[in-house]
Design a protein around this nucleic acid. Structure first.
Lengths: 222, 222
DNA sequence: ATTACATTGTAACATTTGTTACAGTTACCT
DNA sequence: AGGTAACTGTAACAAATGTTACAATGTAAT
């Protein structure tokens, strides 16, 4: 099995843990090990401890009531699993979590997390920052999805990438990836792109884009 | 001007503040007062203090680059404004905040918030719980919006309301409100509803719904 | 250079949703 | 009871997007 790299975990970095072993010894926690396809957490399960994925890779999936899988996210160690739900009023896991590898998970009771925060300001700020970043991610995702038209989403995305310049810029995704990000069909995305080119709003050469008409572009947002 | 009701603020309740005045005296913070239509926070502004809305009502709006208003939320006192962004890596306000009333805002520097958390476990848990609940709200909103069809959204919503029974139940929203929740057009929602009735999936009498075919219903989710 | 594969462009058609308009119904007020 | 406003149902048409299929182009490996 691989080795732990605790320091690159978003809630554990910069904690000045000189001795990982003794740090973990002091912590009241449990180590759990799973093999590929083991279920680590069941959707709906009570969440009264922090699950930290320290080794391996897992799949987090939302399952609808007829068993269809709605949403999938792959998470790689080291990262806490659903750290926000530990403190929410409805503290149940929103997803199934399945091992994709050999996996180590450290389970830390909520009371220990509270103790850690109270005694270790860095840990507390890490925890807060991580949750805050997650909120920010969700907010911007929501903002993107609440734009209804494909051209609108493109305008939002491309204006972000262009950073208010009219210089050409290169995007790091191909059309299929963009289509997935926007959750639209790939040919529909291609159609919207070529219409925007026809209308003289943008220029495209492979992955290099250039905004030709900033005003038209911004009007697509509404 | 109205009176403060700090105890019903999600991050301040149950703190055993016997004397609000002396509690606030001990806290290094600033009181700010605004009139209707004053700008309290500008989108993009650095967020290095917690803004707690203690009296009044504000509007939080996202403004696109061409000045169109994308998103609006009304917030009433007492509530913290964007508490998650205080600790995020990109700590800038994502919205304009405008007074709708006579408003009091207490501005508490980040360092004071950290100090409060370290000395007051209840405050810390309140803060964490509030952010966690917000995350949960965003997550479920995202889940709803990522269902593409109107019937799918309806199925998701109605199955939630029905709580796995086949008994009739009453929803607390009219069609216009539902349409806004799903961000679709009202007549489109009505059409989907009547199609679902025609297909024998549900029965409707005014705001009373009844699920007739649970399987068909669940299949709409995919 | 040739092949194999991934990516992009495009077209025809189906489906879904939006838009606008109006009629029927219910709720409420006096 | 009558009048008004809110809510709901529905229809015709427009617009946007999805689906499927295939051609054109680019990319990488050998």
């Amino acid at each position: 099995m691989k080795k732990r790299e605790l320091d690159s975990c978003p809630i554990c970095h910069n904690l000045n843990i000189d001795d990982e072993e003794s740090f973990l010894d002091d912590l009241k926690c449990a180590f759990r090990y799973y093999e590929k396809n083991d279920t680590i957490v069941l959707q709906g399960q009570l969440c009264d401890a922090l699950y930290v994925l320290t080794i391996g890779k897992v799949r987090a999936e939302t399952v609808s009531e007829n068993g269809a899988i709605i949403n999938v996210e792959i998470v790689e160690a080291p990262r806490p699993l659903a750290p926000a739900f530990l403190f929410s009023d409805n503290n149940r896991f929103p997803v199934n979590i399945i091992a994709l590898d050999d996996v180590e998970v450290i389970v830390i009771p909520k009371s220990e997390i509270v103790r850690l925060m109270m005694t270790n300001p860095d840990f507390m700020q890490n925890y807060l920052a991580h949750n805050a970043n997650r909120t920010q991610f969700l907010t911007s995702r929501l903002q993107l999805l609440s734009i209804k038209t494909i051209k609108g989403k493109l305008a939002h995305y491309l204006l972000e990438m262009a950073r208010n310049t009219d210089r050409p810029f290169v995007v790091d995704k191909n059309q299929s990836e963009l289509a997935e990000l926007f959750s639209v069909a790939r040919p529909s995305l291609a159609r919207s792109l070529s219409e925007m080119v026809q209308d003289g709003v943008i220029q495209i050469h492979r992955r290099e884009f250039r905004i030709l008409d900033l005003n038209k572009m911004k009007n697509l947002l509404v």
